[in-house]
Design a protein around this nucleic acid. Structure first.
Lengths: 141, 141
DNA sequence: ATAGAACCTGTAGTTACTAGAGGTTCAAGG
DNA sequence: CCTTGAACCTCTAGTAACTACAGGTTCTAT
């Protein structure tokens, strides 16, 4: 491919995703449709690559596709100040905090179960893990 | 409904899920198909309720449906000792540990981004959060 | 010129449900 | 006994965010 442009496979390799993911983002219009060669192959120039990179980094940070759409809207309308961006990021961070807390609680419950189990009983009817799972509420969030 | 048996709605309320979830578990054969009334309504007696409860507790603890199928198989075959159960639980716990570690790393990255942002700039082009997302790798697991 | 890697579009599958449509049955009150 | 409305039935489609094919075309290097 000519200088400054990349094929979809090259882009995928560079930014670290699969070509199918790029297809998908284009289909759902999360990224603009890039121009094509005569034969119909996608041609990615710098702005296309940059936007795709942005989307992927945001995904890596756990933003949902809906949230990314919002971020992109904020970026397109210069009227918006970055307070909105910060708000979205903060909201997202709080969700993650909550998720961590939930997982830690769950992890603790599992640990207790595992500790109680010697793991060598021959009869599964006495397995403390199975017992624990049969209780009314094994874990409450 | 007669004594010792419950309708699907009563079961759902008692163990804390939706009736649709019970329908779903029956459809994918995670629980056995309960007997019906003349008119076709499900009739849940104690063993049916117990197995459903087991499944729900395991789901609450984050076991996947595939893992629950394995647990149920272990329980059906008395030849298995509970070492297998313990192994599955331990594996699951390690996955959760990893997930917590990932989320904490991600949470840190977000915190850094948020800290750098005053949140009051009028021009979004200078927003440090957007800047960070445009970087090559915002976060690596 | 040709081989084969890379690309194309489009559809279906994944996980664990949830929501809805359109119809039937059950239980309580009159 | 009859009616009413809540609860139930089955079946299909939708959700998130991709992934995996199938069946065909184009590009690139020799």
């Amino acid at each position: 491919m000519s200088e400054d442009t990349l094929s979809i496979g090259q882009v995928a390799k560079r930014i670290g995703c699969k070509t199918e993911t790029i297809h998908y983002y284009e289909k759902i219009q999360l990224i603009p449709r890039p121009p094509r060669t005569e034969g119909g192959h996608r041609v990615f120039s710098s702005p296309y690559i940059k936007q795709l990179n942005f989307v992927l980094r945001a995904r890596e940070l756990g933003f949902s596709i809906l949230q990314i759409r919002e971020l992109l809207t904020f970026m397109e309308e210069p009227a918006h100040c970055c307070a909105e961006v910060k708000q979205l990021a903060t909201q997202h961070q709080q969700n993650i905090q909550q998720k961590i807390a939930d997982l830690e609680c769950l992890q603790q419950a599992l640990q207790t179960m595992i500790n109680q189990c010697g793991g060598s009983k021959t009869d599964i009817k006495d397995c403390p893990i199975i017992d624990a799972l049969n209780k009314e509420h094994a874990y409450k969030s």
